[in-house]
């Protein structure tokens, strides 16, 4: 049984707005599945349905090949939307409540608070935490009982760069333990770095899905200049190492083919007698890449 989650023709609407529209996909064991989409594309709604909070209007889903129920949900660590805790209880008491529901030993609470660097605040009241700490506590709750499947909705939300790196590190270590992880995100970079598979949602529809390596190939853009830019451009055009060569005011931009290393270009032009005064590798902005992808599919 390698199928962890399968969704068939799922639809959910809020009044006349179709939040999720005839969605179907499958998540295999051991994969990290990214659900990528702009705000309002139906990511959270999809996760709310599969975590039992919302009733689907149409369609169905299965966890571990079974009809979903509370037994299945106990095997899944989920963080959906915002952190939901009792503000007047301490972190420990809040996790105690979750641990009892999931049949997890109380000893595990210290472990997950340690992983998320909250052990020091164990007996603080939840409402004294900063936003980032609240998000980390949600993450701690997800890890309770070392579940085989993680469902994460925008796990980096509200975190500072250090926190984002930390959460990413934890996700990767969970992935390396062979966990199945489902992540919803609008941040392409996040998905690209941690996911093996990706499904792209737009207005509740799955517009494309597949392996991250195939779907999200990134073209890197080079910025080069030399004493004689016109000559440089000619040489680059003949090199076959780059495409989309454009001459700017004082530099040349070109898209580097994915298998080429920037160093090869430097070596090539030196052989042709040109010394570069500038060589920069820029990733296209992720948003623009994503928007292009969404546009292509329309």
């Amino acid at each position: 049984m390698n199928e962890i989650l399968s969704i068939q023709n799922l639809s959910k609407n809020y009044g006349r707005i179709k939040a999720v529209d005839d969605l179907s996909f499958t998540v295999e064991r051991g994969t990290v599945y990214g659900i990528l989409g702009p705000n309002g594309s139906g990511k959270t709604t999809t996760l709310s349905v599969i975590t039992g909070v919302l009733h689907p209007a149409k369609g169905s889903y299965r966890w571990f090949g079974n009809k979903p129920g509370k037994r299945e949900r106990k095997r899944i660590g989920s963080l959906v939307e915002t952190p939901n805790f009792y503000p007047y209880l301490t972190l420990f008491q809040n996790l105690q409540i979750a641990a009892r529901i999931k049949n997890v030993q109380e000893e595990d609470i210290n472990r997950v608070l340690g992983v998320t660097d909250l052990l020091r605040r164990k007996h603080s009241k939840y409402d004294t935490l900063s936003l980032g700490m609240k998000q980390r506590l949600s993450f701690a709750s997800v890890l309770l009982g070392d579940p085989e499947v993680l469902v994460l909705d925008e796990p980096a939300n509200g975190l500072d760069p250090e926190g984002i790196a930390e959460v990413r590190r934890v996700i990767m270590s969970e992935r390396d333990k062979g966990k199945t992880i489902i992540i919803a995100s609008h941040i392409l970079d996040e998905v690209e770095k941690v996911c093996t598979h990706v499904g792209i949602l737009k207005m509740g529809k799955l517009i494309t899905s597949g392996l991250v390596d195939k779907l999200l190939v990134m073209d890197r853009v080079l910025t080069l200049s030399a004493p004689d830019n016109t000559k440089l451009k000619e040489i680059l055009e003949k090199s076959g190492l780059v495409k989309n060569i454009k001459e700017d005011v004082d530099c040349i931009t070109a898209t580097i083919l994915s298998e080429t290393e920037p160093g090869e270009i430097n070596k090539y032009v030196i052989e042709k007698g040109i010394t570069l005064t500038r060589l920069e590798v820029n990733k296209p902005t992720l948003e623009s890449q994503f928007l292009e992808l969404v546009r292509e599919q329309n």
């Binding site: 909070v53 509370k70 949900r73 959906v80 805790f85 979750a98 529901i101 999931k102």
Partner: peptide, 21 residues
């Protein structure tokens, strides 16, 4: 009412309670 406003009814279902629970 608190369970609704803290969204903890939701969270408890996510964690593995049923509506009946």
């Amino acid at each position: 009412g608190n369970e609704f406003s803290f969204r903890t009814f939701r969270q408890q279902v996510i964690n593995g309670l049923s509506i009946n629970d």
